[in-house]
């Protein structure tokens, strides 16, 4: 033990302390104002110093017993890691990727799940129509009273027709209708059928089926009164978008549920995480579509009362969605 020769870990520290201090100064600047504050040379220095500091930490863990030094290095490397591996995203980049390909690719990959959702929807509708044909009282079993309003087997044909071509109300009332819609039945169904898909698809399947039942009951009622075409138009203008949104949300749920049911070579947790990448995108697309459907239902349906025009517009928009899903980002692959 001599005064002239400091112990090994002290020499280790003395040799590297300047680098650590330089790194700390750079990290502090990134923390206060983002990596954009650094110029080219400084960013390069940040990366190089960070790598040096990780090596220092690795060595210090083995050779040094100086607790304060170890704590300092641990936190310095942690902070530098956060500065170096920060997400380098821009809003336009994120949006561009989502609309330009990643969302549509997720939809294309989920083809079977989407087909499953549509099948459940149609199956529900078919069953409800069959049952309604036997006994109209089934209508009350399927359709919640809040949703049915004054529409029902007991209502006159004229009331039903008026419901389809209601143009009264000002802009504010339309806004109200839009607002009420967004939080109405369908949004809730979409949210639940997505979120509950994790439980092996069963809740999503039941919800989609149930939604089909409601739709089928309405359909049977109106068809019974000879208003089938008019209902088709009324439903088309927003329904094409809205029901597709429901199907996509349910398909997102199915992807999660299928990942849990059939994880393949992965663990269930990993499989769930892998499929959540597509499922989240499906949910976002469904949310966007529900928003558009809300606009269509609140405004367009009140403004356009011609059945043919309603059908053309509804399916035209549906075609646009389909075009986006099928075409966007294909060339990049």
């Amino acid at each position: 033990m001599s005064d002239s020769q400091p112990i090994r870990s002290s020499r280790f520290r003395a040799e590297r302390e300047a680098d650590w201090r330089a790194l700390e100064a750079l990290v502090e600047r990134v923390e206060s104002g983002g990596a954009g504050r650094l110029d080219f040379e400084e960013s390069r220095a940040l990366a190089a110093l960070y790598r040096k500091a990780t090596t220092s930490l690795s060595v210090a863990r083995d050779i040094s017993l100086d607790k304060s030094l170890l704590i300092y290095l641990e936190t310095l490397v942690a902070r530098a890691f956060l500065a170096v591996y920060a997400p380098q995203e821009s809003l336009s980049g994120v949006m561009g990727r989502f609309f330009g390909g990643s969302a549509s690719a997720a939809v294309r990959r989920s083809g079977w799940a989407i087909l499953m959702a549509f099948a459940a929807l149609f199956l529900g509708g078919w069953v409800a129509a069959l049952l309604f044909a036997q006994d109209p009282a089934w209508f009350y079993t399927f359709v919640p009273t809040g949703l049915a309003g004054e529409r029902g087997p007991g209502a006159s044909t004229e009331t039903l027709r008026a419901g389809l071509f209601d143009t009264e109300g000002n802009l504010l009332a339309q806004l109200g209708a839009f607002a009420a819609f967004l939080f109405s039945h369908n949004t809730r169904v979409a949210l639940f059928s997505f979120a509950l898909g994790v439980f092996a698809c069963v809740p999503s399947l039941l919800l989609t089926l149930y939604n089909g039942l409601i739709l089928g009951a309405f359909w049977a009622l109106y068809a019974d009164r000879g208003l089938g075409m008019e209902l088709f138009g009324w439903l088309s203008i927003h329904g094409v978008t809205e029901l597709s949104a429901l199907a996509l949300a349910a398909a997102g749920g199915f992807r999660l549920g299928l990942a849990v049911l059939f994880p393949g070579g992965l663990s269930r947790k990993d499989s769930l995480r892998a499929s959540s990448k597509d499922a989240v995108k499906l949910a976002l697309v469904a949310a966007l579509m529900l928003f558009v459907a809300g606009l269509l239902e609140g405004f367009a349906r009140q403004l356009i009362t011609d059945t043919t025009l309603r059908i053309v517009m509804g399916w035209g928009i549906g075609l646009l969605w389909l075009g986006w899903f099928m075409l966007a980002g294909r060339r990049a692959r």
Binding site: E17, W20, D66, S68, L69, Y72, R79
Partner: peptide, 8 residues
């Protein structure tokens, strides 16, 4: 994380 380097 936050820590200062104390003298050896």
């Amino acid at each position: 994380p936050k820590a200062v380097l104390l003298p050896d």
